[in-house]
Design a protein around this nucleic acid. Sequence first.
DNA 1: CTGAAAGCGCTTACAG
DNA 2: CTGAAAGCGCTTACAG
Lengths: 350, 350
Amino acid sequence: MAATLKDISAELGLSVATVSRALNGFPEVNEKTRVRVRAVADRLGYQPNRVAQRLVTGRSGMVGMIARLNADMTADQTFMEILAGLTAALGARDVDLVLNVDQHSDPVVPLRKLYERGILDGFILNAPLIDDPRVAYLQSKGIPFVMHGKHSATADYPYYAIDNARVSADAVDYLVARGHRRIAFLNGEAHHAFAAERRQGFDAAMARAGLKVPDWAIRNAPPSVDYGFDAATALLTARDGAPPTAIVCASTLIAVGVLRAAQLLGIEVPQDLSVVAHDDGLPQVVSDELETPLTVTRSPLREACVPLAEHMVALLEGAEPAGLQTVARADFIKGKTTAEVPNGGEETWL
Amino acid sequence: MAATLKDISAELGLSVATVSRALNGFPEVNEKTRVRVRAVADRLGYQPNRVAQRLVTGRSGMVGMIARLNADMTADQTFMEILAGLTAALGARDVDLVLNVDQHSDPVVPLRKLYERGILDGFILNAPLIDDPRVAYLQSKGIPFVMHGKHSATADYPYYAIDNARVSADAVDYLVARGHRRIAFLNGEAHHAFAAERRQGFDAAMARAGLKVPDWAIRNAPPSVDYGFDAATALLTARDGAPPTAIVCASTLIAVGVLRAAQLLGIEVPQDLSVVAHDDGLPQVVSDELETPLTVTRSPLREACVPLAEHMVALLEGAEPAGLQTVARADFIKGKTTAEVPNGGEETWL
DNA sequence: CTGAAAGCGCTTACAG
DNA sequence: CTGAAAGCGCTTACAG
């Protein structure tokens, strides 16, 4: 079958050890020997047996990832996007991704099940929750992991995250600078860490501007067009006669719904209403649905994948977790959905 | 670290060989010994080292799967649905799924890349094409695989498929029995094996009824709402004054588009137009978009997963491929989108 | 019923 | 610069 080191060593009259060293680029090997070994290895189509390598090095070269399905069992675009980039980035580093799909209510269960198979070097987590139970579990077991995002400000594990507080603050600051005073916020679900950070950044920026927001103008739900549509409809038809002049959306999906609602209500964007969204760089949302380019904060999910893979590899090679924490800043991209506050919009809410 | 056979054997004063045999259910082991071994193994949380097992048995307990992204990089709902069911079904059988996501133009490339890592026992393929190059590659290499679907009528590998010819024939027969003579067909992309089978079943059923269809009334495209909408708009506004009285759709997504187009054109369903679709049981399509229950042929994708996993395990254990071929029949479910042919619709096309 | 031994294919101290 | 040896954790003929 497949050629082994033994085959090469037999053919050349060398020891298996020397062949191994030659192929692995050890400096002490004679250059002529190396060339001869390389030649025979190529001729025989030698591929190192990863299983044997893994047995001796104690590492499997495999990391796990759990896909969580939404309640309606839909494919999660966000997850697929990360998955696509991650398998490529990990593969380039000789690491394979073992996947489990789970709809379990306890996120630790699939993690534990997969880990107890005993085949994984570690995990890549995504979509952290506040007080994420997965973090507690993995840390208590000493299982290596890298997070896309971070579950709290004091996270002491490797991660790649964006500065979510700044995302909101950038949006608010931009709107405030254009005179907006009544700014609503369609956030993600409150138990998600990213949503908490976004909220924090939103509150801080509003406070700096001396502005307040009534409870009904800040909402939490899973990002979707319907959410944006329904929430915007409610906000814009608020009976007190003080609708928001601007809406900050946690995702472009939500913004699409907001734009539809505004159109249906005869509210012109951006003349009567400004809309800012966060854009994860998911192609379908941008290209398919939007006639008007949104003003967005943008950090493509794909950009997280290479750093995540690198952090994972470094962690497994023994690097300090503290050195493997990256926070990226989202770009601010001005589109056609933001403008100066309309006349009569300067009045504050509270 | 993790407990090994050696740890258990040391604690019990047994040989590693006996411990291995006890844990693996060899019949010659003394029952009392087995119980003692089991107890210590459980207490130590022993998990067999799969890498070591693999090295000695030549099997890894891992199978690969490639996710192909659409051109617009969208998550593929169909794929996620299968993935979810499959990881569960495989996991229950102690098999792990290694995933690669690929947008490569040549479908063999990711397969080869993953296989050459040398860590997989086999592959699970989905979405077969006519003359699928993956089949040729895997068979030429002698790599085990199981297919969801089959690429040709003479497939000689393990698969789980539905009777796609019958799916179309059932739809056509049902419509013909209600007097329809002008039946259009919005099929999937022509190079997909399932679409070819559907076409075949459609043609055969139409021929049995003595009916013909002009080229423009049979269309091929990736299933989507837009495709359904655009195609139905074209079909129903055909200048020759002989629009179809019924449309058969390759998926519920397409049917959703057809219904929208009909509504916009003021064409009543089912009075003026009957619509039949194939339903893969994807929850989001059924629940989110439809006000009118469709008449469908239905075979939930989820139902394929357990048979696929079982076939995979059996194949790896040496079963004959010929005994691992399952063809399921889709259910026919009458909804509210089909009715007797409208007046004036009895005229044939050709 | 149990044990000692060989071996899967590789890596890596330890000698020389 | 190269080799002989030990070992990663397991399985499985071969003895007893």
